[in-house]
Structure formats: C-alpha cells, structure tokens
C-alpha cells in the first residue's frame, strides 16, 4: 500500500455492482488486488486505474470512496468516476447520461457536479434514494449511490475531476423487476465506446494537472546535494519553477555548481531571477 507508483494519469472508479463493472474491468484490464480488503478492489498493471465494487446504497458508496482513496494513495489530480444503472421516467431506455445536479430526500440543498466540456452526451438531474422508487414521474434519473459518492469525492479533489454517468435501466415501460445481471452488463457494454471517450478526457485532465503540480525537474537532484529545511525547500521549488521557463537544465546546474550551502543556492537562483529581463517576443 505504501509503495504505490506515482502515476501521471490517475482514475478511480466507484461502481455498485460487479455486473456494472465487468465491462470496465475487461476493457481496462483491471485485475483483483492480492490482498483481502473490505470492498473488492481491482487495478491495472500500470496502477493508473483502480476500481472498487461498493455495493448498493449511499453508506456503501461513501465508505468505499473514502476507502479506495486511502488504499490506492489517490492524489488531488485523480479523477473519480461513478457509473451505473438508473431509473428514469424522462430519458431513453439504454442511453447514457451525464449528471450535473444531484438531490436527495435528506438534504434541502442540491449539489452540482461539473461535466466535461463540449460533451455530446445528454445531461440530467439525479435523485439518489435510499429505497427503490417505482414512481418515475418526479425525477429525471434515480439511483442509490450518486449523492454519497459525489459528497465524498468532492472532499478528495476538485469537482472538475469528478464524473457521474448513468445508463437508464428501468422506467414506466421497463419494469425494475425485470432487470437481470446479464441485462445490466449489456446496458453498460452497449455504451462502452461513449464511456471510453469520457474517460479519455479525465485521463488527459489528470495528466495535465500532474504536469503542472509535479516538482521541477532539478528539484530532487539539488535537494540531494545540499541540505534544505522545509521553508528552504519550498523556496527552492518556487525559484526553480520560475527559472526553468527561461533557463535550461545545464545553465541552472552551471549557476549553482560552486555553491557551498543551500542558502547560497537560493541566493544565486534569486539573483538570476532579479537580473532576468523577459524577452516578450518569445512568448
């Protein structure tokens, strides 16, 4: 658990049922992890995708999201995905929808997930219920996990990295009692290409964020040569980020090579910035 790889793109799936997850497990080649865990967890070889089967209900969704976060060492640039079936009186049976508003019985206020930009998929308002609902007239989409997943995931990352997708499985003309395990798998399978397309956006987003927050190239190298306190480390990181824009690695190494202390490294880098005259025609 503590020796996990730091991956550039990072996706975490929270899915209620194995039948809903199976197509995802197959496509992304996710295998069960070799440890006994509270909820079943799967991951791919590169450890970029992790998936947890949370079971039905809000409590399971909340607990498993937090559990997967801790277990998989997710970062603040990890994208969180919840996909599953939902009832609906308004959408089309078998179609995939993005969720951009969530309500519950328990809470007066709604929550508002972001959706990926320029999405071709339709969007709907999700109602998360603690009991199965057969009156479909009031709500666009009905599930049993979405609100809890979103509440916890939005404490772990910013809401632009969270996505909820629902495939309509039942409604006034498709009785909830007729849902079978194979029907569930097929509903997800029929929408796999659309799901992959959505996920590729979140993989890119996660990777871009990683590039932005990753430590500057020379940071660890410099830290291994001189001793830096926590405050000095922060200063070094900030200075390197700024200098790397106008100086290449060799120039920076040359600049600091005669420094005897961490303090003099910081001073020399600081002077380099003080003397920098930006050539605006280059940017």
């Amino acid at each position: 658990m503590n020796n996990l790889k730091k991956t550039k793109n990072s996706i975490r799936w929270v899915i209620a049922l194995k039948e809903e997850a199976q197509v995802i497990l197959d496509y992304y080649k996710l295998k069960p992890i070799n440890e006994k865990t509270i909820y079943p967890i799967y991951k791919n070889e590169e450890e970029t995708h992790w998936l947890i089967i949370c079971g039905i209900g809000r409590n399971n969704a909340a607990a498993s999201t937090a559990y997967l976060y801790a277990y998989s060492n997710a970062s603040n640039y990890t994208s969180w995905i919840n996909i599953g079936i939902a009832g609906s009186g308004k959408g089309n049976y078998r179609d995939l929808y993005l969720v951009d508003k969530i309500s519950t019985y328990q809470r007066k206020k709604s929550t508002y997930p972001s959706t990926l930009p320029k999405a071709t998929l339709p969007k709907m308002h999700l109602f998360t219920s603690d009991i199965p609902i057969s009156d479909y007239s009031t709500y666009e989409l009905i599930d049993m996990e979405g609100s809890a997943f979103f509440d916890i995931a939005s404490k772990l990352t910013s809401k632009e990295f969270i996505c909820l997708m629902k495939v309509i499985s039942d409604g006034p003309e498709n009785d909830i009692k007729e849902i079978t395990k194979s029907k569930i798998s097929n509903l997800i399978k029929e929408n796999l290409l659309k799901i992959i397309d959505v996920i590729s956006y979140y993989e890119r987003l996660s990777e871009e964020e990683f590039q932005i927050i990753d430590k500057p190239k020379l940071f660890n190298e410099i830290k291994s040569k001189w001793h830096f306190s926590a405050t000095q480390s922060y200063r070094l990181e900030t200075l390197l980020r700024r200098i790397e824009i106008f100086c290449n690695k060799k120039d920076i190494e040359k600049t600091i090579k005669n420094c005897e202390t961490s303090n003099s490294v910081i001073n020399v880098l600081n002077t380099k910035i003080k003397n920098n005259l930006i050539n605006w025609s280059k940017f």
């Binding site: 932005i212 900030t238 980020r241 700024r242 200098i243 824009i245 106008f246 910035i273 003080k274 003397n275 920098n276 930006i278 605006w280 280059k282 940017f283």
Partner: peptide
Amino acid sequence: FKLYPNEPLFTSPLS
C-alpha cells in the same frame, strides 16, 4: 502562481 506556475510573467524580477 499555483494556478499558472509556468507563466512567463512570474520569471520577472518580483519580490
């Protein structure tokens, strides 16, 4: 700076 660490403006002699 946290939002845009690679921004040329922040290579200015700011203190």
